[in-house]
């Protein structure tokens, strides 16, 4: 059992290291990039949209193209997020997705 827990396949380790190298490159690319280029005006405004745009893109397929329960729960979470602390809004979102999925299968 112990040997299974600590088993490491050489090819698995190699794959992990290649994945890690690629990921690290993307993470420091911005540091290198901003060293040579300074952003102002329109470019700066565009760059400021990066955070919400990426977060939105990551969740959009799940939030808007999975089903009615997910889309409705997304709306509930978004409205709750404007008024409640983050943990409360998140909990409300998860609870509402469970309730809505259940309600939709019953109907």
């Amino acid at each position: 059992m112990m040997s299974e827990v600590f088993a490491v396949d050489p090819l698995v380790l190699f794959t992990i290291l290649v994945m890690a190298a690629g990921t690290y490159l993307t993470r420091i690319a911005g540091l290198v990039l901003t060293k040579f280029v300074t952003f102002s005006g329109r470019t700066e405004a565009a760059l400021q949209a990066v955070p919400p745009a990426i977060l939105m893109s990551v969740v959009a397929p799940t939030a808007f193209a999975t089903g009615i329960a997910e889309t409705a729960a997304t709306a509930i979470t978004a409205i709750a997020a404007l008024r409640l602390p983050m943990l409360a809004a998140m909990t409300l979102g998860v609870v509402s997705v469970v309730v809505l999925r259940l309600a939709l299968t019953v109907i």
Partner: peptide, 26 residues
């Protein structure tokens, strides 16, 4: 294990980090 496919797909999905680090760096 299709390590090359995995490595390339990982790189692709992580390309967003370029924008993220460029946005945070300043």
């Amino acid at each position: 294990l299709p390590w090359l496919t995995i490595a390339f797909s990982t790189f692709l999905i992580n390309l967003r980090h370029v924008l993220m680090s460029a946005s945070l760096a300043p």
